[in-house]
Design a binder for these strands. Sequence first.
DNA 1: TTGAAAGCGTTACCAG
DNA 2: CTGGTAACGCTTTCAA
Lengths: 372, 372
Amino acid sequence: MAVAKRLEVKLESNVLDNVEWYILMSKNIKISDIAKSLGISTATVSRALSGSDRVTQATKDKVKQEADRLHYRPNLAARNLRIQKSMAILLVVRDMSNPFYLEVFKGVEGIARRAGYSVLMGNTEGDVERENEYFNMLADGHVDGMILMTGKLPAKHKLLEMPASETSIVIALEKIKDCNLRRVIIDNEAAAEVATQHLIDLGHKKIAHIAGPEHEPMSMLRTKGYRNALKAAKLLSTEKLEYIGDYSLESGKAACHKLFSNAQDYPTALFVANDEMAFGVINELRKIGLDVPQDVSVVGFDNLSFSGSFYPPLTTISQPRIDIGKQAMHMLLNVMNGKIDTAVDMRMPTNLKIRSSTRQLNISDNSEVKND
Amino acid sequence: MAVAKRLEVKLESNVLDNVEWYILMSKNIKISDIAKSLGISTATVSRALSGSDRVTQATKDKVKQEADRLHYRPNLAARNLRIQKSMAILLVVRDMSNPFYLEVFKGVEGIARRAGYSVLMGNTEGDVERENEYFNMLADGHVDGMILMTGKLPAKHKLLEMPASETSIVIALEKIKDCNLRRVIIDNEAAAEVATQHLIDLGHKKIAHIAGPEHEPMSMLRTKGYRNALKAAKLLSTEKLEYIGDYSLESGKAACHKLFSNAQDYPTALFVANDEMAFGVINELRKIGLDVPQDVSVVGFDNLSFSGSFYPPLTTISQPRIDIGKQAMHMLLNVMNGKIDTAVDMRMPTNLKIRSSTRQLNISDNSEVKND
DNA sequence: TTGAAAGCGTTACCAG
DNA sequence: CTGGTAACGCTTTCAA
């Protein structure tokens, strides 16, 4: 605030009432300036400004007008100190460079700003250290609330030992074991089932799956959905048809080599647990001479903003990312205001976006004998 | 802070010295608690904690130990109010959902956190209203500094009327007319020239260009680089070979139809001002039966994280996004600390990433007669 | 080297 | 309905 400093010298002069001068020199007007100028108390000014109903409309108007004239802008640090809030929330993600989170952020930010909150974004990159750091920010009052998108919780943090109703945390899209915080989620299992069913409906019999990391709840749910669909259709479900990846492009490539090692007998369809891995397999498939969707159909999960411009345009499960962000923020707002909904989970809809990476399997394409 | 509230009741009791109790109840320890517990003044505690050299090492140690024992955590709002800083900076972008900004953000955040700053992200979406709002945040002291990535400035804002040395703003990657704020940039013109030259080196004669929005400085620079290269190679440069887009996927598609309307005589190469538009053209080209790079070579600009997984993997100009973010933040830190470098611009290197969307043009491919 | 005390700009309590 | 004033928790000046 070099500006403010420079002014203090000049303040000695007697032009304190000259509005023009204030504006020109960008002196920071405070409540007491308005009060002095109007000959009333700071208390009244404060109340008038915050729209308290314990002030006459007349004084309210007078104060507001004077505030405008003087270009008054409240000092947030002071207010925050006084009301013991930071008016900021924190969105924590695993990996900030994943574009997936951007739209969620957008949703969150929109609602937050309207409610007067700023949004900080933190990324843990899987680092427990940093995870803890972000939890500390909440504990320290650096932020008033937190939306967690890292399927993890610090091993032990004092915040987690308090009743959930007093912890301003909302979990988005992730499932965390042994944790009963409020969440906004999608039905991963059902969505995965829908995705797989789409493949089944297209006539595929041998459907493989590229999963996310083992033991990770979200990933397990998607795998479960895949298995459910196969089971319901009485199709082959074996571990040989499942590859465990880590959501990365690279692991998609690796899966390709594993699943398609036998040139004679490979799966004709693939349900991949996220779009990024799907990109990886498809590109690798092309390299080994297999075309999507001609030779193998692929459906992904996420519908990244990019998935539609991929070649071939990817059939995938679409999540309402912006709405998820909005809902999470709404929920957090409620939590912070003490209006805690009894409903613990808010479930957002997903839908299958059918594009061009999947196709009907002709009977002649299939070397296996139909068994029904 | 429901917690704190609940405690005030209990505070009446006489167990104020019971550390365990403090921890258990997550009572917020303040400097005066440490002072009281140690029988010294708050001034000394504050100094000890901030590492002032006007305290004996002995007391420093004592204080720090006690602070640890009591799990002291400073109250930022109070500190910020006192020192008249917010310890937060703002990164303003045009469109938050553009993944391009994510890595810049990552770079910024890393440096900022290390320096004790939080990072807020704002997006203007081209809205002048919001642009002004973000400038107000800076003027109000809501943030201490600002990194601008929207090639725009509010028409008139008091901040802009102060000497640049007192305005804590750094411009990243954009050029703004009539504005002498500090910037971290790349050499758009030279990079575009390199990109185009690559096409020329591959033997292409008829090279078209898909530009960004007209009148926008960055876009103009890239177009200029393209023209320079053609001129130097004595190649045809005409308005008919240039299409003005808006950086969007859609405008890339539109460009395709315009530039390739004549099936007999179309450009064999394309320099596209950003990757997103490149994706658009390439997909559209495929639809009208033209293969990249077989029939037409394409080079983009940006090297989005996705560009390598596109099909075909895109040849493009790569910008060091994370480093750009880091540098911008370093610069901002210097500005905020009053260590203003005399150097106004920091230029970051770019490089041409050659992948598979460009190929050597055979002489037989070219219907035109060589003229050299 | 340390301590007392004055703020930083608000809000909120308690009187009137 | 309004005014005086005590916080909020910290840093920093001025004295000792």
